[in-house]
């Protein structure tokens, strides 16, 4: 059952303020992830889990890095369920968890951050992991 929208509004805003495009429908997900070239970071947002509170600031920090994905999009697990399910179809080899992040390049998942890699870690540590992936997969020579 979704949480009250009033509760999640600040969590949505935290994502859009850092430049993420929020995808709320399957059509929006397909437009963003289907047959798209370049690099896209998909952030599976989450209300609970004791981890999302670090994951969002971590991504915000990582996006201040010099090299970053062409595009950042987000779906909200437990809230926008159809959009989230559709997004997960684009990285179906990976077990669903939230929060989590998938870095996709030319339609292929090249880096994945699971919830278990976020829990209990500070945003700086998570951001370093992301920045390394950005350097590896999003740079001009990647």
């Amino acid at each position: 059952m979704p949480y009250p929208e009033q509760l999640v509004t600040p969590m949505r805003a935290e994502m859009t303020l850092m430049g993420a495009e929020e995808l709320k429908t399957t059509a929006e997900v397909d437009a963003a992830l289907g047959d798209v070239r370049g690099t896209t970071l998909v952030f599976i947002n989450s209300v609970c889990g004791c981890a999302a509170g670090n994951a969002r600031p971590a991504l915000s920090l990582a996006l201040q890095h010099g090299v970053k994905p062409d595009r950042v999009v987000t779906v909200f697990a437990g809230q926008d369920t159809d959009a989230t399910a559709r997004a997960r179809q684009y990285f179906s080899d990976y077990q669903p968890s939230s929060p989590s992040m998938a870095l996709i390049r030319d339609g292929e998942v090249v880096h994945f951050v699971h919830r278990h890699q976020i829990e209990g870690r500070n945003p700086q540590s998570i951001a370093e992991n992301l920045a390394q992936a950005f350097d590896k997969f999003c740079g001009a020579t990647a």
Binding site: P10, M11, E14, V47, R56, H116, G120
Partner: peptide, 18 residues
Amino acid sequence: MSGHVFHTNRQELHGVTV
């Protein structure tokens, strides 16, 4: 909402994959 965490009164490992 940065740093927002639920369950702050739980055991230390609560919510952590073990």
